[in-house]
Amino acid sequence: MTDQILTELADAVVAMDATRASRAAGRALESGIAPVVAILDGLSKGMERVSELYEAEEYFIPEILLSADAMNAGVDVLRPHLPKESTRDKRKVVIGVVKGDTHDIGKNLVRIMLENGGFEVHDLGRDVAHSRFVEVARQVGADLVCLSTLMTTTMDGMRVVIDELRRAGVAARVMVGGGPISPGFASRIGADGYGRNATEAVRVARSLLGSGPVVARGATQA
């Protein structure tokens, strides 16, 4: 029974069906499955399959967004039943699109994938002033700061943010990404990591917070 419900949770996410996901989450609670288990072994498993489908070029951005909506619908049902302390030791991430750029689709995807990957994410939105990243990173005690931009014209702002973070003595690691960003550019401006896309960003975030600087595999842009 438990296995069946967990499979249904995962399938609902893959099927992008929010109604199915919240119904399955309700059944999980009724049959005594721990909410944490329903999330990790049910909904998150579905999201992992969505990532695989994305990398296999079967799912694209619309599918990821709707799958994440389904996952969130399930989490909303489960959240009130989660033990309170389980959010305490989450790694904290501050994310935003740098000043001058209002393209936030990539950033939103990374946020969704990080949240679903178990990070506590503070989203500053788009067109974010350089100093704001420093301020919030310090305030929340961020482990990781993620900077995104889609435009060549605002890339240089990432360098400014990283410099300001270092100058302010913020110890957080920094990950960058977005259309024009390459691994080479990332390392030139002093970023600790680079993610080519949203699913890769989660992998890079995990390895960054575990060990030293990484550049993601599969980074192909010159």
């Binding site: 951005i61 619309p62 967004l65 709707l66 936030d104 689709i105 939103n108």
Partner: peptide, 16 residues
């Protein structure tokens, strides 16, 4: 279209 409404909404509505 993605300059007339939020891109995230637009991409969701492609399917919905």
């Amino acid at each position: 279209a993605t300059s007339l409404l939020d891109a995230t909404t637009f991409y969701r509505e492609l399917r919905a």
